[in-house]
């Protein structure tokens, strides 16, 4: 092979590997080299990129390979992963909100309570421990901010009661789920934008109110759109987003319990959750259906 031919081959191979990154890592480890070899053979000699039809085929194949991942787990196991991710996203969001608010208060010389910093830090520690499946230490780390929230926040307002109830419920869910199926690192991308948006709201946006609302709503809309687009491949993302939205809305719903202004919103969430769970059931392994690799 000539030097230029070797250069083309290397470039083509590199680009094939780049396209292959659309596949799940485990699949790439098993099949990657083989697929790259076939792609290189199937690409005409004068091209530096695979044929458009091969690129399209890889995109579809990668979506199918990702959809197959769920079929290794039962519906209950997939549901546990989705709920874990949703609850983790909510706790991270709360911690980011507190930390962002503290940073802003420190910058402007506003008064702030130190227990908030402790609560937020313990929140983060609880999450990390939950992710690492250290149940006992996680319970301890989670109980402290729960106690702090209950004892130090006051005077009691319906929103704060709702917040405390939501926090305790999320903590209980995490405790129940730790040690079972755990979301892998891929799920951190869900937590990432939520935390970033919350920090952005607290740290960058001048003033409060409308600007903060816009960032929050835009982030949530984007997440919702992505989760809807991803429904056919993996319904767990939509369920995780619904869990997050429900947890985030619950304190407000409890504060407005009398007017019931949040109830239609919660009803919509529940209505969207039903088809998502139905889809997840179809995407999961069933005792009567053979699993496909």
């Amino acid at each position: 092979m000539s030097a230029s031919g070797e250069g083309r081959f290397t470039t083509l191979e590199r680009r094939c590997r780049l396209l292959l990154r659309a596949y799940p890592a485990a699949y790439r480890a098993e099949r990657g080299e083989e697929i790259v070899g076939t792609l290189v053979e199937a690409t005409p000699g004068d091209r530096a990129w695979p044929l458009p039809r091969d690129i399209r085929g890889l995109a579809i194949g990668s979506l199918r390979a990702r959809a197959q991942l769920n079929r290794c787990n039962t519906t209950a196991a997939n549901l546990r992963v989705a709920v874990f991710a949703g609850v983790a996203a909510y706790l991270a969001y709360e911690a980011a909100g507190i930390l962002g608010g503290l940073a802003r208060a420190a910058e402007h010389g506003w008064p702030f309570t130190w227990h908030s910093l402790v609560v937020a830090t313990l929140n983060v520690v609880t999450l990390v421990l939950a992710w690492l499946s250290h149940r006992r230490t996680m319970v301890l780390a989670g109980a402290l901010p729960a106690a702090a929230s209950l004892a130090l926040v006051g005077p009691w307002h319906p929103y704060e009661v709702g917040y405390a109830v939501t926090y305790l419920a999320c903590l209980a869910v995490l405790i129940a789920l730790v040690g079972q199926e755990r979301p892998d690192r891929r799920w951190l991308w869900l937590i990432g934008p939520i935390v970033l948006a919350e920090l952005l709201v607290a740290r960058v946006v001048p003033g409060t109110g409308a600007e903060a609302d816009v960032i929050g709503v835009v982030t949530l809309c984007l997440l919702t759109l992505v989760s809807i687009a991803w429904l056919a491949v993996d319904a767990r993302l939509a369920i995780a987003v619904i869990v997050f939205v429900l947890a985030e809305s619950l304190p407000l719903a409890m504060a407005n319990l009398v007017t019931g202004i949040e109830l239609p919103f919660l009803g919509i969430c529940a209505a969207v959750a039903a088809p998502a769970v139905w889809l997840l059931r179809r995407q999961s392994a069933h005792p009567g259906r053979p699993t496909q690799t």
Binding site: I35, T38, A42, R53, D54, L58, A59, G61, P290, T291
Partner: peptide, 18 residues
């Protein structure tokens, strides 16, 4: 029938599993 590489390996996975 002009199989793309992605289609081929999806089919090979399925046929192997079956």
């Amino acid at each position: 029938v002009r199989l793309t590489t992605g289609t081929l390996y999806t089919a090979l996975d399925r046929l192997t599993a079956e």
